[in-house]
């Protein structure tokens, strides 16, 4: 997931990578449906991790829903954050009046239904994909671990919690310096969302990366690294 970005930063920073509980190589048995019924549950975990790995404020880089988790943590514990880099973030996926999250509620319902009924599709279509790329097996494995939630119940729960969340209120509360890395064509987090966030957050800058898709750190790693490097010069 982060293999293209880490080499550039490893030399100057201590880089800590982690999987959200319930995904990747985390301990699935630690998944508490009550705790993780809100992203705040993950935010608490993040604060614990920061406490465990550093006694100084950190630079937090989060992608997509993890960016939102970082946002919530920075509101709860602003002293632990030097700044945050939000890649393809969205505080709310559902359109609401003038706010354009990119999806109608029906879209999200349909998405959740797809996940519910397509457990096999979401979790196992990756296997053939890996086989289709024998020359880079480690890459496929990495993607599988990152994306595939091996427990369908957790996958369903996580999708609902993520796509139905609305944390726009938290934006104004986060005084942590923030860089929003916005893709020029992101179906999941459209530009309108990036613009909205920049306006709402007291200390946010936005950098638009020319990229189709939701994962610029994978599909446009150089541009992403450059944008982050530029931003970090000031911090």
């Amino acid at each position: 997931m982060w293999r293209y970005l880490t080499p550039s930063f490893k030399q100057r920073f201590k880089v800590v990578l982690f999987d959200l509980v319930g995904s990747g190589r985390s301990d699935l048995s630690a998944y508490d449906f009550k705790k993780y019924a809100s992203l705040q549950g993950y935010a608490e975990d993040l604060i614990e991790i920061i406490d465990a790995v550093s006694d100084q404020p950190v630079i937090f880089i989060g992608h997509s829903v993890s960016a939102t988790i970082g946002l919530l943590a920075s509101v709860t514990a602003p002293d632990k954050f030097r700044c945050q880099i939000m890649i393809g973030p969205s505080p709310c996926y559902i359109n609401d009046g003038e706010y354009i999250g990119g999806f109608t509620r029906d879209d999200i319902e349909e998405l959740c239904d797809t996940i519910d009924s397509n457990y096999l599709g979401w979790s196992s279509t990756m296997a053939p994909a890996i086989m289709g790329s024998p020359e880079k097996p480690e890459l496929g494995e990495e993607l599988t671990n990152s994306f595939c939630r091996t427990d369908p119940e957790i996958a369903k729960h996580f999708a609902r919690v993520t796509f139905l969340s609305d944390h726009r209120d938290a934006l104004v509360l986060s005084h942590t310096p923030t860089l929003i890395l916005q893709c020029s064509d992101d179906f999941i987090a459209p530009c309108t969302v990036g613009q909205y966030m920049k306006r709402a957050m007291p200390k946010a800058e936005i950098c638009i990366i020319d990229n189709v898709g939701h994962c610029p750190h994978l599909s446009a790693p150089d541009a992403s690294t450059q944008a982050i490097e530029n931003y970090l010069k000031n911090y």
Binding site: F103, D107, I108, E110, L111, D113, T114, I115, N118, G121, W122, T125, M126, P128, A129, M131, G132, S133, E135, K136, L139, G140, L143, F147, D186, F187, I188, V212, G213, H214, C215, L218, S219
Partner: peptide, 26 residues
């Protein structure tokens, strides 16, 4: 479909970019 578009975004596009091919994507 929306689900498909998510999947395209999160899996298909990055994979195609990274490894040059995808197969039997549903």
């Amino acid at each position: 479909t929306i689900g498909g578009r998510f999947f395209h975004h999160t899996h298909w596009a990055p994979l195609l970019q990274l490894q040059g091919s995808v197969s039997e994507v549903q």
